[in-house]
Design a protein around this nucleic acid. Sequence first.
DNA 1: TAATAATGTGAATCCAGATTCATTTTATAA
DNA 2: TTATAAAATGAATCTGGATTCACATTATTA
Lengths: 220, 220
Amino acid sequence: MAYRDTEKTRSKREEIRTRILQATHELVVSGGFRNTTIQAVSEQAGIATGTVYKHFPSKAELFSEVFRRATQKEVDKVAQAIVGQENVLLRLQRAIRCFAHRAIQSRGLAWALIAEPVDPVVDADRLEFRQAYAALFSDLIREGIAKQEIPLQSASVTSAAIVGSLAEALVGPLAPPPPTLQTNDRTLPSQQTEDALIDNIIRFCLQAVTGCAFIEDQHK
Amino acid sequence: MAYRDTEKTRSKREEIRTRILQATHELVVSGGFRNTTIQAVSEQAGIATGTVYKHFPSKAELFSEVFRRATQKEVDKVAQAIVGQENVLLRLQRAIRCFAHRAIQSRGLAWALIAEPVDPVVDADRLEFRQAYAALFSDLIREGIAKQEIPLQSASVTSAAIVGSLAEALVGPLAPPPPTLQTNDRTLPSQQTEDALIDNIIRFCLQAVTGCAFIEDQHK
DNA sequence: TAATAATGTGAATCCAGATTCATTTTATAA
DNA sequence: TTATAAAATGAATCTGGATTCACATTATTA
């Protein structure tokens, strides 16, 4: 008889699946979720529209997976920047710098992950995404409070506020390029260089947390 | 011959137009933009669907006007809270309290104005909305710097960060009730009372701006 | 090679709501 | 009244993109 799953079979299936995810990711990075149609995805991946549905039950599910993958990578990076034996403030600073740097490097992605209007399924993922960051920060803040490195405060409010300031200061000022990728002539607000912007954000957040800010100069 | 614009005519037209705006506003407050269909609007207003289009060129335009009206009211309130001869920090505190209080009072509206995924036309309005707040704050901060009441800093970054923290701390933790208004059992994070939450946010922002925070007790 | 069963294809279908428009109602001026 | 035109009506159309499905390809085992 015929056709049991074999290595070749599985690997090819995986490969197509991956190609769909990659194609979607690329389109999202350059044009956001809104402009990413199944037709465009299949074109980009070099397959037929129907094939997409042999690998993903719906557009929402596909988007959700793309979102979660991209998101997880970002959260991991920040989590990585946070670990260490140094004092809490330094680690907080490193985490914020990491977040900011990456957001600036890849604005299209940052916008899609943080600010772009998306459908409810993906929006639910985004909630988790922000909560993941907030959790990272609030753990760190609790640790800092316990070690008496920072004053007593509501870790949950502080961490939410930090996430909010990062999002707004980094993605808000950006001209949200939703429908057509418009002429991206408007660069950062008032010619701030990336480092200056990041330093400002760090000062804001550290001061908010402690009442004072010593910015370590450890760019990149 | 016949039918030149008269008082009665005009006032009736106005009245219907207003009724459409009100109906839309009510639906948005209770269910967000996404769930607000033209059909629902016309039902709520007690008119036919076609009539809506006699008063507004498209759904997007109608939504845009509703958004801008609601938004302007909020911005005005905050602007009002900001004026005065007192020191800058006190006025900043008052403005933040005003924003926060109103957002908490009317969560549905706050969510629709600040966080709900909306179509591009309305999203453009939202950008202006946030910029209006940011402009309010950044003027105040520049004033404070000039008067040496607060340290030198980037007013634009600080104000964007303030707007971001407010939005995230007030609307983010909220269970975004997008598709169906789900059982809103999850109240504020960890049973914080409104005042406690607001005080936390104010401390965060004032400290971020100055390095210290004296919270005036002038609730409401 | 033949039989079997996934997988790939892409044109045709579906769908939810926005939008239209032929018809009816309401108001105005003579 | 009557002729005229704006406004209201809501069933019928339109639309853009997701989703389906009958058919073609490609692997797999015997």
